[in-house]
Amino acid sequence: MERTFIEEDWMSKPDALVYDNHPETLIDRPLHYCPGCHHGVAHKEIMHVVEELGIQSEVIGVAPVGCSVFAYHYMNVDMQEAAHGRACAVATGIKRVRPDKTVFTYQGDGDLAAIGTAETLHAVNRGENILIIFINNAIYGMTGGQMAPTTLEGMQTSTTPYGRNIKDIGYPLKMTDLVAHLPGAYYVTRQSVHTPNAVRKFKKALKKAFEYLKDERGTCFVEIVSNCPSGWKMTPVESVSYIEEKMLPEFPVGDLKTPEK
């Protein structure tokens, strides 16, 4: 590997590596995502959390249909690929027959909030002891930037070329808010990963979610407000501003339901 730095003596010391880009739980291979895509950040930090909690052998993940269809190419845990929208049903099947395992789904907004609305709401309503990780970037990335259920009002996509007109096509669907109302939900939070501090908060929330699962008191649900530079027709840096200025006012971060509340 070509290195872009000069080696220091102390670097070989055991504690010198303070951020390992490929922990055991993350497979070392180039990601197929576009430059600047938050899927990469989410994958990496989810696997960091799995590593830090030492639960690699307990975890079974469910990958969705969408850009992150190949999540199992990167996440070094047992995984199953679900049909579009069906991840929560697949996770239910796994969890019911392997109740001692930690089961999570990783789903985009089209998958979870459009075609998989029923599976998602009913899994939460049954209080399935699974973790649902919801990547909301307000667009269908894989198929070429079409409108998603979470697309913002006025936002241009390849199927809303004049901007999303709510009179015609309805409002951005706030699945996380819906889910938080269900008694089967145990911990519901919305986070983002667009700044270093946001990533830190997301990791903290995700760690809590994994730990809450052990209580077996219901579904944990973590939304990640994310970007799609290619679909949004922006540079990655511009997409960070867009999240700050447009996405977060519509999808504010924070806990929507905690076991204490």
Partner: peptide
């Protein structure tokens, strides 16, 4: 489990079968 639809039921089957049940 009584699922919310046949669509969900068969996908629960898919998940559970994948887990070796």
């Amino acid at each position: 489990v009584q699922a919310e639809s046949e669509v969900a039921a068969i996908n629960m089957i898919y998940g559970a079968a994948g887990a070796g049940a």
